[in-house]
Simulated assay, not measured.
Amino acid sequence: MDTPDGVDRLPDGPVRRMFSATQRRDLDAMLAEFADDYVNITPNHPARSFTGSAQVRKNWSALFAGIPDMTVTVLDSATGTGGKVWVEWGSRGTRLDGSAVEQAGVAIFSVRSDRIAAVRFYLEPVEKDTADVNAAVQAVTGAGTEGARP
């Protein structure tokens, strides 16, 4: 039977233990699942990439403090070759100023020696009030701007 947070969809191992610790807001248990030389790669925002579990502590400490009711939900996961675990997940909660925050995306974890060694991180804010797909394509292609070709 699926749990409401979806953590049971994850394979046994450090990724599942990390998400379980996140739900319990147990920062030390979370960090125990990361290798000291952990590498976080954020392809859509390269300047946000970092190395080291100390930054994981800093990030999650700020998240837990700034979004006290934050919940994390695992929607799906898959296990790949070479110790890869793909996780579709999201988070939601309320900031201290009362505004709602929601993120969704995918993280591709690399596991080495029963620890999370790296992740390719694709979590982004959910934008509910943005333009439709046509406007999004237009923004990417520049169509409709002066000098654009059909």
Rank of each mutant, 00 (worst) to 15 (best):
T81N: 04
F121Y: 12
D28R: 00
P11S: 08
T71L: 05
M1D: 15
D36M: 04
T141V: 09
Y122R: 02
D37S: 14
D76V: 04
R9E: 04
L96A: 12
S99I: 07
A78D: 01
G13K: 01
P4Q: 09
V101T: 14
I116M: 05
M18T: 01
M18C: 11
A21H: 03
D114P: 00
A107I: 03
V39D: 09
A148V: 03
G98H: 08
M18H: 11
D8F: 04
D76E: 05
K128P: 02
S49M: 05
D8V: 02
L10V: 05
R149L: 13
A62D: 09
A62V: 09
D76L: 03
V56A: 09
D114S: 02
G105I: 08
A100W: 03
A62F: 06
V119S: 04
V7Q: 10
A143L: 13
V7D: 14
T145H: 13
E124M: 13
A118W: 01
G6F: 07
A35K: 01
Y122T: 06
A117G: 03
E127A: 11
V133G: 03
P43N: 12
E127S: 12
G82D: 07
Q55T: 14
A107T: 14
A107V: 10
V140R: 12
S91D: 14
R16I: 01
S20E: 15
P46W: 10
R17A: 13
W60I: 10
R115K: 15
V106M: 12
D2F: 08
N44E: 09
A104L: 15
R120E: 12
E146T: 06
A136C: 06
E33W: 01
D97S: 10
Y122C: 08
A117N: 01
E102C: 09
R16T: 02
E88N: 11
L123Y: 00
R149Y: 01
R120G: 04
G93I: 04
V126P: 03
D132M: 03
V111T: 00
A139C: 03
W89A: 15
D129A: 12
I116P: 01
E102F: 07
V15T: 02
D2P: 15
V72T: 09
N44H: 13
G147R: 02
D8N: 14
D2G: 08
F109R: 00
D97F: 12
S99A: 12
G6I: 10
S99L: 06
G82Y: 01
Q138F: 04
S91E: 14
E146G: 05
D8P: 03
T3W: 12
Y122W: 11
Q55V: 13
A47E: 15
N40F: 14
V126F: 05
L10H: 07
E33G: 02
R112D: 01
A65L: 10
G13A: 04
Q55R: 15
T51F: 00
M30V: 14
P125I: 06
A78V: 03
W60V: 10
